[in-house]
């Protein structure tokens, strides 16, 4: 799938995500909008996956470490054929398997349970190491939030990945500059990320993480070392009044805001 078509799919995923959050009355829409372009590129272009065989041993792995943006993953997985799109209407409803954080034992395509931050990268290191041990050819991708990089467990995993020379591992940091309560810079400013990752022995790319023409080549890049993509994104990307506003971390649009946002995300835009 080429960039223009990927952008169209990403718009559709944004619309469906917005609808799901609006209808459920809850979600983490800001961090979903920042990450959706990357997830779209992964599932509709980059990942070698088998939606009808979600546990295929040779599948590429994707771990959404920022598990609170599960809704975006659900929409992407459903659109890619892992489960029926109609099921998205159950998001956060009583008894639904689509809860606020993804469950690998219930939702096809989810690789490991995430939610508490700082968990996905260590698991992804284990996945990549497993491929090295078994000779499997799959590639492992993991996406963290930038605020999430404040968790020390990530840096344990970053050290291990370099030590194990995991050139089959790509870490994507969704660098949208905001965490739940405030800007990263006003909380515990771990930016700039590139020199830190480089100092730990990683190969680092910096891209506009909301620009498909930069996302795809970065995801497809192969390196001798573990690869980190510092993806500069906008929280709430695609919806003007949400963009870069910290309160849209988990705010829910009212009816009027919902209509405006839907219009902004329409096919013609």
């Amino acid at each position: 799938m080429q960039s223009q078509e990927l952008e169209r799919v990403a718009r559709q995923i944004r619309r469906r995500d917005l609808q799901a959050v609006f209808e459920a009355g809850a979600g983490h829409i800001g961090g979903e909008m920042s990450a959706i372009d990357i997830m779209t590129a992964l599932y509709f272009r980059v990942l070698r996956i088998y939606p009808d065989q979600p546990r295929h041993p040779e599948r590429d792995r994707f771990v959404l470490s920022k598990g609170h943006t599960a809704c975006a993953l659900y929409v992407t997985l459903a659109k890619r054929g892992f489960f029926p799109e109609e099921e998205l209407s159950t998001f956060l409803q009583p008894g639904s398997r689509l809860n606020g954080h993804p469950n690998c034992n219930k939702v096809p395509g989810v690789e490991t349970n995430t939610g508490p931050l700082g968990h996905g990268l260590p698991v992804a290191v284990g996945m990549a190491k497993a491929a090295k041990l078994s000779g499997a050819g799959y590639h492992t991708y993991v996406m963290t939030g930038d605020g999430e990089m404040q968790e020390g467990s990530n840096w344990e995993a970053i050290m291990a990945a370099a030590q194990f020379a995991l050139n089959n591992l790509t870490l994507i940091i969704d660098h949208n500059r905001f965490q739940q309560g405030a800007a990263l810079a006003d909380t515990n400013d771990i930016a700039p990320l590139r020199p830190k990752l480089e100092a730990f022995g990683w190969d680092v790319s910096e891209i506009d993480g909301n620009r498909m023409s930069e996302i795809v080549p970065a995801l497809e890049k192969r390196s001798e070392r573990p690869h980190c993509i510092v993806a500069h994104t906008n929280k709430g990307h695609g919806i003007s009044f949400m963009q870069d506003r910290v309160d849209w971390h988990h705010k829910v649009p009212n009816r009027e805001q919902y209509e405006i946002a839907l219009a902004e995300l329409s096919e013609s835009n």
Partner: peptide, 10 residues
Amino acid sequence: GVGAGLANGG
């Protein structure tokens, strides 16, 4: 975490 990933990878 690495243990969980290793199990995921068979």
